[in-house]
C-alpha cells in the first residue's frame, strides 16, 4: 500500500487562509457492507484521484495497476463506526492545497479533478471505488473552500467503479448499503506476482 501522506492540520476556517481546503465526507445515506453483506466495521477510506480515462473495467482485478494509477490525497484507517453504527463514516479533513501528493502538485494536477473514494477492508482483500461529480476544490479565488463528497445514493454522478451500489442490507440509514467486492487477481497478475517473489527470493539467496 502506498505511503499515507501526512497532511497539515491547518484548521477548518475558511477565512483564515487560502492554503487549505477542507474535505468533508460522510455516508449516512447508505453505509458500507462487505461482500458477505456484513457491515464494514473497519478498514481504510482513501480519497484521491484516478486518471480521467482510467479503464476500471480492464483493471478491476489488477490491484497493482489500481495502486499505480491512484494518487492519494488523504487516507483514514481504523474503525468505520460513525454514530456507533458499523459501516458509516464522517470525515472533515484539512488538505494543504500548496502541497504535492505522490509527486503530483495539488494546485496543478489534483484541483478540479473528480474525488474518488477507495474503500478497503483491513488487509485490502475487498474493495469499492466510488466517484461523483464532486471535484477537489482549488482553495483559491472565492469561498467556500470545501470539497463536499458523499457516495450516497442521489449524489450527482455517483458511480461505483468497483463494488455495487445499494446491494447490501439496510444498516440503519433507511436505504440499502453499498457493497464492497472481493477482487480476485487475474491469473496473469497472480503469475507476475509469484514470479516477482521468486526472483526476489533467488536474489536474496545469492
Amino acid at each position: 500500500m502506498k505511503k499515507i501522506l501526512t497532511l497539515l492540520a491547518l484548521g477548518t476556517s475558511l477565512c483564515a487562509s487560502q492554503a487549505a481546503v477542507t474535505l468533508n465526507s460522510s455516508n449516512f445515506g447508505n453505509g458500507l457492507v462487505t461482500a458477505d453483506n456484513s457491515a464494514l466495521a473497519s478498514g481504510s477510506l482513501r480519497f484521491g484521484v484516478f486518471p480521467a480515462l482510467f479503464d476500471f473495467a480492464a483493471n478491476s482485478a489488477n490491484l497493482p495497476a489500481l495502486e499505480a494509477a491512484f494518487v492519494q490525497v488523504y487516507a483514514y484507517t481504523g474503525a468505520i463506526n460513525a454514530l456507533t453504527v458499523d459501516g458509516f463514516y464522517e470525515i472533515s479533513q484539512s488538505v494543504d492545497n500548496t502541497a504535492s501528493f505522490e509527486g503530483q502538485s495539488y494546485a496543478t494536477s489534483i484541483a478540479g479533478q473528480k474525488i474518488y473514494l477507495w474503500a478497503q477492508t483491513t488487509g485490502a482483500t475487498q474493495q469499492a471505488i466510488f466517484s461523483t461529480s464532486t471535484t477537489w476544490n482549488s482553495g483559491v479565488g472565492l469561498p467556500p473552500f470545501d470539497s463536499n463528497f458523499s457516495p450516497d445514493t442521489g449524489a450527482p454522478g455517483l458511480v461505483a467503479h468497483i463494488g455495487t451500489l445499494a446491494a447490501g442490507q439496510d444498516l440503519g440509514a433507511g436505504a440499502p448499503a453499498h457493497m464492497l467486492a472481493v477482487v480476485v487477481p487475474e491469473p496473469g497478475v497472480t503469475l507476475s506476482v509469484v514470479m516477482g517473489g521468486l526472483a526476489l527470493l533467488v536474489r536474496r539467496r545469492r
Binding site: 465526507s25 470545501d146 450516497d152 442521489g154 436505504a175
Partner: peptide
C-alpha cells in the same frame, strides 16, 4: 443525508465562515 446532496448555507460564526445543510435522510 450529507452536504454533497443538499443545498449548502454558509454563515459567519464569530468571524468564521461555517457551512450548514438541512439533513432529512
Amino acid at each position: 443525508s450529507g452536504a454533497a446532496l443538499a443545498d449548502e448555507i454558509y454563515i459567519q460564526i464569530n468571524g468564521t465562515l461555517t457551512g450548514f445543510f438541512y439533513k432529512n435522510a
